[in-house]
């Protein structure tokens, strides 16, 4: 009976939302969106402060926001304060996991299978490649798809591979914690430096350079590498917390 009521409720709610969306003139059909009437056009043209020149790859200099990847420009430049909050949320959740699962004496969880020699050596070889891909994605966040968050998760997934493929393996958790707190503090310090020297919190202090160069966009690659390391070490810490248990 309860399930039937829940089914009725969800069907009714879904029908209401769909019919409302289908008849709403302010909700265009998928694909018919006109981006030029939205705020996003200003982000694409780097036009928030009223610079209406055309942005050309490899030529444009001294834009108000330097990354070639517009999503990065929004995440790490226009809405960088928001991203600081997001990193804080992730930090608090990893802190919560450590509080719930951690203890003073930790040892590896007993797995049901014991990996053989080939699996252990093969995963060690793959580990380096995955780790390098993660770092590459973090460093190129302002030029190509990806950035600190996907790169950081990829770094953490390389740690997960080692944890799963070797039942004796245990990473140096203390190093993760030091890395996490250092990079997190560095992000805030960069923001405060911007406040002191430039007048805004998280002001971009360095030169933006030519759009599309690896060394361009000023502070944004630095911030994104910091985010990548922070996310990577945080999620690695969470993985370690899940794969250990109390005991000697």
């Amino acid at each position: 009976m309860k399930n039937f009521l829940a089914l009725l409720l969800t069907l009714f709610l879904g029908y209401m939302i769909m019919s409302w969306l289908a008849t709403n003139e302010f909700f265009p059909a998928m694909g018919d969106v006109d981006v030029t009437t939205r705020v996003s056009q200003k982000y694409i043209e780097r036009d928030v402060n009223g610079n209406s020149e055309e942005v050309v790859f490899g030529e444009a200099t001294n834009l108000e926001s330097g990354p070639a990847n517009t999503v990065t420009a929004i995440v790490a430049d226009y809405r960088s304060f928001d991203t600081l909050g997001e990193v804080t949320v992730l930090f608090v959740s990893s802190l919560g996991v450590a509080l719930l699962l951690g203890g003073t004496k930790q040892r590896r969880l007993e797995l049901n299978f014991h990996p053989n020699f080939m699996l252990r050596v093969g995963s060690r070889a793959l580990f380096g490649i995955i780790l390098m891909t993660g770092i590459y994605i973090s460093i190129h966040g302002h030029l190509t798809p990806g950035g600190g968050f996907p790169g950081g998760t990829m770094i953490a997934s390389s740690m997960l591979l080692l944890y799963l493929a070797d039942d004796e393996f245990r990473a140096k958790v203390k190093g993760f914690k030091i890395l996490e707190s250092t990079t997190g503090s560095a992000y805030v310090i960069i923001g405060l430096l911007g406040l002191l020297l430039g007048g805004y919190f998280l002001e971009n202090l360095l030169v933006n350079g030519v759009l599309g160069d690896l060394f361009s966009a000023g502070m944004i690659p630095i911030i994104y590498i910091l985010i990548g390391l922070k996310v990577g070490s945080e999620i690695s810490g969470v993985i370690d917390n899940f794969l250990t248990e109390e005991g000697v």
């Binding site: 939205r38 780097r46 790859f57 995440v75 949320v89 759009l211």
Partner: peptide
């Protein structure tokens, strides 16, 4: 994303703002 192929802001891009918001939501 500006690349050497899609190199001008006059081209037709999809809206980047929802993507940035979803990046936050996923994390």
């Amino acid at each position: 994303i500006f690349t050497s192929v899609n190199n001008s802001s006059n081209l037709l891009f999809v809206d980047p703002l929802p993507q940035a918001l979803v990046l936050t939501a996923i994390v």
